[in-house]
Simulated scan of single mutants.
Amino acid sequence: MTQNAQDLAAKADAARESLADCDAVLVAFSGGVDSSVVAALAHDALGDDAVACTAKSETLPEAELEDAKRVAEEIGIRHEIVEFSELDDPNFVENDGDRCYHCRTMRLGRMYDRARELGVATVCDGTNASDPGEGHRPGLRAVEELEVRSPLLAHGVSKEEVRELAREYDLSVADKPSMACLSSRIPTGVEVTEERLTRVERAENLLRGWGFEQFRVRDHDGLARIEVGADELDRALDPEFAEAARTHLTEVGFDHVTLDLGGYRTGSVSPAEEAGNGPDASDDAATAEADVFGTQYPTRE
C-alpha cells in the first residue's frame, strides 16, 4: 500500500470512528459522490442507525432523485425523502448573491425536522476539505450556522480522495461530475421561477439523452446559453446538433438558443460557486456514452 493510500485509509477510519461515537446520524444525501461516501461511512459505523435523507424540491432534477434512490440501495442505507419548496422564500426567489445560503438553510432545516421526527440528534453533510477554498460559497455559512457535522471536512478528505473512497466502495457515482441545483443556471438578479427551472431541466434532459456528459443550459430570461465540456465542443458545433438544439429547446420554452464557445465552466452566471455537493449541497450531471458524431438528433416532423 502506498503512503497516500495509507493516509486515506487512516482518514476514512477516523471518520468512521467519529460517526460511531454518535447514537445515530442523518446524512443530507443528494446521491452525488460526496454525500454518498458520507452515507457509506455512516452505514459502516452505525448500520441501521444511519439514515440518508434527500430533499425533493423544484430545483432538484428528477433524474438526480432517481440516482439518489439507486445509490442508497447500493450502500444499503435507509433512505428518507422530504419535500419542500425554495420558491416559498422570497429571498431565494430574488436570486441575489446569497441564493445558495437561503437554499441550504431551508434544505438543512428540513433535514433537522426529519431527524427530530426520527429521534436522531446529528445531521451530517458531504462538505469535503476542498470545498472551503473554492470561491464564493455562501452555502457553507448555512452549514456552520446550523452546526451540521461534515466528516469529510473534519478529517481532511479532499475531493479527489472522496472519489477514491467511492471507488473502494464500488459506488456507481465515483466518477460522476459535480451537479449544482437547477437554480444555478439562472443569472444572479433574475428571479427564480418554476417556469425557468422547468425549461432548464427539460433542456438538460435533451442534452443528456443526446449523450453529452459535462454541460449546462443557462437561462438568460428566455435565451438558452448551452455550455458543453471542451472535449465535447466539436459535437456541439455539428450543424445537425445546432438544428436539433434550436428546434427542441424552443419547444420547451426558450425564445432563443445559443452555444457558448467558451465551453462549460462553473459559476458562469453567478458569484456562487456551483462545484460541490449541490442539492445536499450538490454533486452532478449523469454520464452517457455516445460516439462523437454518431448521435442521431431528432428533427421536427
Rank of each mutant, 00 (worst) to 15 (best):
V27C: 00
V33Y: 03
A28T: 00
V37S: 12
S35F: 09
E62K: 06
A52P: 01
A55S: 07
C53V: 04
A63D: 06
S30C: 02
C53P: 03
A63M: 03
A45M: 13
S57Y: 02
A50F: 07
A55F: 14
E58M: 03
D44E: 14
T59R: 06
C53H: 04
G32F: 04
A39K: 13
P61Y: 14
A40I: 07
T59N: 03
K56T: 15
E58H: 08
F29D: 00
A40D: 08
D48K: 13
A63S: 10
S35V: 07
V38F: 14
V27S: 01
V37Y: 07
V51F: 15
A63G: 02
L46W: 13
D34Q: 11
D34V: 05
K56H: 09
P61G: 08
C53K: 07
V27F: 00
F29V: 00
D48R: 12
A28G: 07
A40V: 06
D34I: 05
L41F: 11
S36R: 12
A39V: 14
T54I: 02
D34L: 05
A40L: 04
G31T: 00
H43R: 12
A50S: 04
A40K: 14
K56W: 13
L46F: 06
S36N: 07
V51Y: 13
S30D: 05
L46K: 10
C53I: 06
V33T: 07
E62D: 15
V51D: 04
D34P: 05
A63T: 06
A45D: 07
A42I: 08
L41M: 08
G31P: 01
H43W: 11
D44A: 11
S35C: 05
L60Q: 03
P61N: 06
A55D: 03
V38T: 09
V37P: 09
T54Q: 04
D44V: 15
V27I: 03
V38S: 14
V38K: 12
S36F: 10
A50M: 04
H43D: 12
G47T: 15
C53S: 06
V27T: 01
G47D: 15
L41C: 08
V37R: 09
A45L: 14
